[in-house]
Design a protein around this nucleic acid. Structure first.
Length: 594
RNA sequence: GCGCCAAUAGCUCAGUUGGAUAGAGCAACGGUUUUCUAAACCGUCGGUCUCAGGUUCGAAUCCUGAUUGGCGUACCA
């Protein structure tokens, strides 16, 4: 492939430094950036680093480099040096040809397969309660990161490790057994996960009541928590489960079945999918052989009570228990085993865990242990840590009912989308089906974009009293832009067979749009490397914004010259495709009209 | 106590390997439609980038220390 203009600029700048100043400047010190809007030009070379070699003032140096470059790069029409910044203007014909030969191509920004396999584990719900807003963030992040990595050339496996066993499930089961009166999703009309969640709350109420009674009898908080009859009963149930008790297993299967049916619906609405499910009921006993391996290798050590530990104090961490004294597993034991299992199953080069930042320490330890065990694949592990979703009142807590329920929120979003669309009178000629589809698309677009535009690492504030916007820097704005372009294309009778002609010159907003569109591959690369859908989300907004500016300033279908008209139609069509592709990687669909 | 993370406009957020006068959206105010969708566009207002030092030609960005908030530091997951 031919050299890009950026590569040429770097190359010739290096040559210029050599010829003019007799110095060898490393290429990575040559800093290019986009020219700020208030100055002429499109690309800027920062001159300051060069003055080290020129031993001259920034202005003089910039001008000398500028003259040198202009003599050698025909696309360069002008330059200006302002306060140490060499601003370079490129000819309209350069931008036109960049668009016509590259950006317009179907494959622009699609990276070839890189031959590497990668797993993204996300969602990983507990099966004792329905999903809430925090889970939505996790699911959207996991899904979007997977799609971005696919676009970047990875072979991606999406995995979901379902926490389907344990004391929390038994709590729901026990409460249902006692107070459920045989209630089922069909008898109650409740979605399965909500039904099970209801009994989780029932359990907690009763548990608290018993704790208070015991405290009234003089027990301490800790004692009461341990001694409450209902929690002891739940623990007995867990033991029965582990022993394979038929009755308990049957109930467990039934209630988990309800939950899975509910989750499938929610996943469907969210538009997330998985290639592989792992269940903790299958994996919770794994990892003990790894413990033995670690003992043999001298990575772990045994204490007097037979508990097994790893000493990470040299790494600035603590001693960490990896197996209980009675030989049973802890959380990290199964995670060690599951990591090995996943690798045995797929042999992937990299493995991403999408898990909240409350588990930063856990993953640090997990990865470190696997490295110390000499697992060659341990270097490919990465914890994609994201911030909690907080309410103005603080953290969401399932048991206290202060959660924003996923299904309710999606209903609300769709409803708002319907109201707004009707207010704007944009439903004419749509069938009921099409309307429903559109409202879902817009509502989910608003929600998803709202969550994904924020850097994963940062915590996210959600105020239930303030509805998510549909205007400005939002999903619907971008969706609207797409629909608007589609309308232009149909008015302009655009088809692939229309000849792509070259206009004699470009309007400023037109040239800016081409420049923004040209950044798409860079953005995919950056988002993939940093596992950050937020970068892509903000980029797509920029594209939409720049298009709207262009749309307002210039005529498209009404342009007088055929060259200009055709070119602008292609520019519009490419913008629509870029928006659709980018939003697609975020898991957001875009409508043909709205 | 120790560790990790965050702090940018009234609010929600951007800000590339350190580069120009720190940018968007919302909110507020004003303007734009006989012309391709006004969920749009243009403008006004709004900043001690938490604070104090340091490194540098240059710091929101890097280093040190503090402040505030969150999380972790369980033989819980």
């Amino acid at each position: 492939m031919a050299q890009t203009i950026q590569q040429q600029l770097v190359y010739y700048t290096k040559q210029a430094v050599k010829e003019l100043y007799g110095a060898d400047m490393p290429e990575n010190q040559i800093a290019l950036q986009e020219t700020r809007k208030e100055f002429d030009g499109q690309i800027t070379i920062v001159v300051f680093p060069i003055t080290r070699f020129s031993k001259k003032a920034p202005e003089a140096t910039g001008t000398e480099i500028g003259v040198y470059l202009q003599q050698r790069i025909p696309e360069m029409t002008a330059f200006g040096t302002i306060k140490g910044f060499l601003n370079i203007s490129l000819s309209d014909s350069y931008w036109i040809s960049l668009f016509s030969t590259q950006i317009v191509q179907e494959g622009f920004g699609i990276f070839p397969a890189n031959g590497r396999k990668l797993m993204v584990e996300y969602s990983s719900p507990n099966t004792n309660k329905p999903l809430h807003l925090g889970h939505i963030r996790n699911n959207l992040l996991g899904h979007s990161v997977s799609e971005i990595l696919k676009a970047y050339g990875y072979d991606v496996i999406k995995a979901n490790l379902v926490n389907d066993r344990g004391i929390h499930i038994c709590k729901s089961m026990l409460a249902w057994q006692r107070w459920g009166n045989g209630e089922t999703p069909s008898s109650s009309g409740l979605k399965g996960d909500h039904l099970v969640g209801k009994y989780y709350v029932v359990f907690d109420k009763e548990y608290k009541k018993e704790i208070n009674e015991l405290k009234a009898q003089g027990q301490s908080e800790d004692e009461a928590k341990k001694n409450a009859p209902i929690i002891r009963e739940a623990q007995r149930m867990l033991q029965k489960w582990e022993a394979g008790d038929q009755e308990v297993i049957t109930l467990w299967k039934t209630m988990n079945g309800w939950v899975y049916a509910g989750f499938e619906q929610t996943y469907g609405r969210l538009g997330v999918r998985f290639d592989r499910y792992y269940y903790e009921s299958d994996t919770y006993l794994l990892g003990k052989d790894i413990i033995q391996e670690g003992l043999d290798k001298g990575v772990f050590f045994k204490k007097e009570d037979n508990s097994i530990w790893i000493d990470l104090t040299n790494e600035g961490l603590d001693e960490k228990l990896v197996l209980r004294g009675d030989g049973t597993s802890v959380y990290i034991t199964q995670d060690l085993g599951t990591a090995q299992l996943k690798y045995d199953d797929f042999g992937m080069d990299e493995s991403i865990y999408v898990v909240g930042n409350e588990q930063d320490y856990h993953f640090k330890v997990l990865f470190l242990i696997l490295k110390k065990l000499g697992k060659p694949w341990a270097n490919g592990l990465y914890h994609l840590s994201y911030g909690m979703v907080d309410l103005p009142t603080g953290k969401m807590k399932s048991r206290e009912g202060t959660v924003v329920d996923a299904d309710d929120l999606m209903d609300e979003m769709t409803d708002t989308a319907r109201r707004r669309t009707e207010e704007l009178g944009k439903t004419e000629g749509l069938s009921e089906d099409e309307k429903a589809q559109l409202y879902h698309m817009i509502g989910m677009g608003a929600l998803k974009y709202f969550l994904l535009k924020v850097e994963p690492k940062k915590r996210l504030l959600f105020d239930p009293n303030e509805s998510i916007d549909f205007q400005g820097h939002t999903g619907p704005f971008i969706q609207y832009t797409h629909a608007r372009i589609k309308s232009v294309l149909s008015k302009g009778a655009f088809t692939d067979s229309l000849p792509l002609l070259s206009p004699p010159s470009l309007a400023p907003s037109e040239r800016d749009l081409i420049q923004v569109l040209g950044n798409y591959p860079m953005i995919i690369e950056a988002s993939a490397k940093e596992f950050s859908p937020a970068q892509l989300a903000n980029y797509v907004y920029e594209v939409a914004k720049q298009y709207n500016k262009f749309y307002h300033e210039e005529s498209i279908t009404k342009a007088e010259d055929a060259e200009v008209r055709n070119f602008r139609l292609y520019l519009s069509e490419t913008t629509a495709r870029t928006i659709a592709k980018g939003m697609g990687l975020l898991g957001v669909e875009v409508p043909e009209r709205m």
